[in-house]
Design a binder for these strands. Sequence first.
DNA 1: TATGAATGAGACTTCATTCAT
DNA 2: CATGAATGAAGTCTCATTCAT
Lengths: 210, 210, 210, 210
Amino acid sequence: MSSQKSTAAADAAPDGAGRAPKRARGRQRVAALLDAATLVFAEKGYDAATMTEIAARSSTAIGSLYRFFPSKEALAEGVLRRYGERAGAGLDAIAARAPDLTAGDLVDALLDLMMALKSERTALKVLMDARVDCDNRRQYLRGVVQGRIAGVLSAYAPALPADRVAVVSVMLLHLMKAVPELAEEGAAAALIAEMRLVLRAYLTAAVADG
Amino acid sequence: MSSQKSTAAADAAPDGAGRAPKRARGRQRVAALLDAATLVFAEKGYDAATMTEIAARSSTAIGSLYRFFPSKEALAEGVLRRYGERAGAGLDAIAARAPDLTAGDLVDALLDLMMALKSERTALKVLMDARVDCDNRRQYLRGVVQGRIAGVLSAYAPALPADRVAVVSVMLLHLMKAVPELAEEGAAAALIAEMRLVLRAYLTAAVADG
Amino acid sequence: MSSQKSTAAADAAPDGAGRAPKRARGRQRVAALLDAATLVFAEKGYDAATMTEIAARSSTAIGSLYRFFPSKEALAEGVLRRYGERAGAGLDAIAARAPDLTAGDLVDALLDLMMALKSERTALKVLMDARVDCDNRRQYLRGVVQGRIAGVLSAYAPALPADRVAVVSVMLLHLMKAVPELAEEGAAAALIAEMRLVLRAYLTAAVADG
Amino acid sequence: MSSQKSTAAADAAPDGAGRAPKRARGRQRVAALLDAATLVFAEKGYDAATMTEIAARSSTAIGSLYRFFPSKEALAEGVLRRYGERAGAGLDAIAARAPDLTAGDLVDALLDLMMALKSERTALKVLMDARVDCDNRRQYLRGVVQGRIAGVLSAYAPALPADRVAVVSVMLLHLMKAVPELAEEGAAAALIAEMRLVLRAYLTAAVADG
DNA sequence: TATGAATGAGACTTCATTCAT
DNA sequence: CATGAATGAAGTCTCATTCAT
């Protein structure tokens, strides 16, 4: 609103309202870059994906891509981080409702979340498999998501002892990882339904035993 | 009886006894190459793995690697094929014993096989995800292993209707895929035990329902 | 008038005058690459010529060479194409003057053109012999040059029947091909003079007979 | 005739008659190798021709090829040398008959020889263009053939002064070089006939002038 | 002596990253 | 700050040549 003077004479108003649009534009750009990166990583794999294609897919100059993400690894990290945020938010939302859910509803909620993040999951798998930022990022993400699932589980079954929560939540995460792949098999619907049974049976048994 | 060939692929000399050593050395070399390739693919991923490193790890000149596997893709196919053979053989052996096994024993047998193939499984995952020989080999392997699992299931529960066998065996495969990853987590032993529970519960329920 | 661009391809900036320098530099770079390629192909032959040397000779990074010519074959095609353009232009110019020339003058003009293109001719020979882009480019070039010579001949001797034009122009082309090689022999001057005699005699006889 | 004992017990009679068959076999082998080499060089060009293919085409083990020709360059030199011998012999034969021939007959004889050596000429061209054994062999061959043509010319026209013989024979060689290429054009027959005219006209004029 | 598996230098090509404009 | 041409390290693959059998 306040300025289209994108090229010259833009160095007034150092902070307050002047740079807001700039920052907003930056955010949009970052989002577009992450979208494109997620897409291309998922399609081609980490190594085969090229920075040039990612830039092109988001209509960004390659130089600008490097301004926001100073390396391919940083870009991958960005994709991973955003996934972590989204998955975390989804899991937190489920955790909030967990106390009032039946086992079946809880499983449905988790499966729905998984399906919603399906495209990002593919990119995620590729990036985790690529030996990129192996230890730092991987640990982090694992921790974030794992911890959130533990949170959901605790909220759902407050009586479950901590050691069981740890084991069961890891198992739940691993079981849910299979969902996006099942969704690509021939009989996707039947398999997802079957997975719902598996999860519900496991969850019920785990909570009862605990 | 007369040989010390310790490595693998040990169907001994059915040839004219003339230049057995030559062929034997070739087989050893191929096995060493596949071992190294499996290792490096698992460590680095398909693209990041370099033919040079695979050659070096098996103490082979790069030219010799290319004599046996004329391209990186062919090498990946070799790794996949060998995995298919080993997994197939293991599953067939289990299928033979299946009629006499309890659910718990069957699950144990499957888990043991999975653990035995653990290192190869990691390479397998990477190679299946890589956009290599996508359709031909992937379909084939999937078919071979999937079919073998269906065979095991049929042998174990002959009364299970065909459509259930199909769905349940796909689900079993996907569940077992998680095993190698679980084995790399912190509390590996507890997680494997937990997976045993999951599988036994699912298998029992599936057979009872069917 | 305002420019020092000494190299070639000097059809000056018909663009929007905005980023002329960028395009001009590209043109210069392409010209330098083609010059170096022509030289190296001529010296070493197609296969023995290395992209690395061609890049080095034109003070270009290997990556830049590949930006302009995405493969060795494309580079060879570029060399061929430029030769075709230059030879075509030269022959067209001769055709325009042909009606007013004596046989001797016409032969001189053709020989002069041949000598002017001498260095490119050597590269051309090598590239035509190489089993590269065999059919497409080869046919094309042959057609362009052959057709232009036929044009010169028709302009010079309009009464010559079409079938004779075809045969005679092919023969002229083949005779002229020997010129660059003669120029590298010991007694170059004498041989060129001799070739002038051969051509004049043949041309005169052919036109008279026809 | 004297022995079929090709495998064993052939090490008696160290020199005289015993090793004759061995030597004969060697000669055959060399001839087969040169034939294959000529063929493959002509087909693929010097660089693209592989020692392995040349060995295979002559049913020779690669190691044996290297026993007779210790390098690819040596093999090329062998091909060139044999061509020189054959062309030299042919030209000598023509020289012997030259005094009794008309210009037309002489040209016919030369063209016939050229056509007879056509396949070898192709290999020759490829090898001369490849910058192999550039100076030594090339000079040699050029000298041998050039000298022989000069011999033919002197025999045909004893009155021609030496300096003219030199120039005319070089020109004749260069004109004849075009023959194999003309033979591959569309209207081969017409072009060969045309070339006969060119050569006869040039030869007649040169002898008359001289 | 014949054989052909083994060797490794070096070619073509790609692409992450930089920096002049 | 944006742009995208330029850079060069590194990867896959070939093939002349050697040498153990």
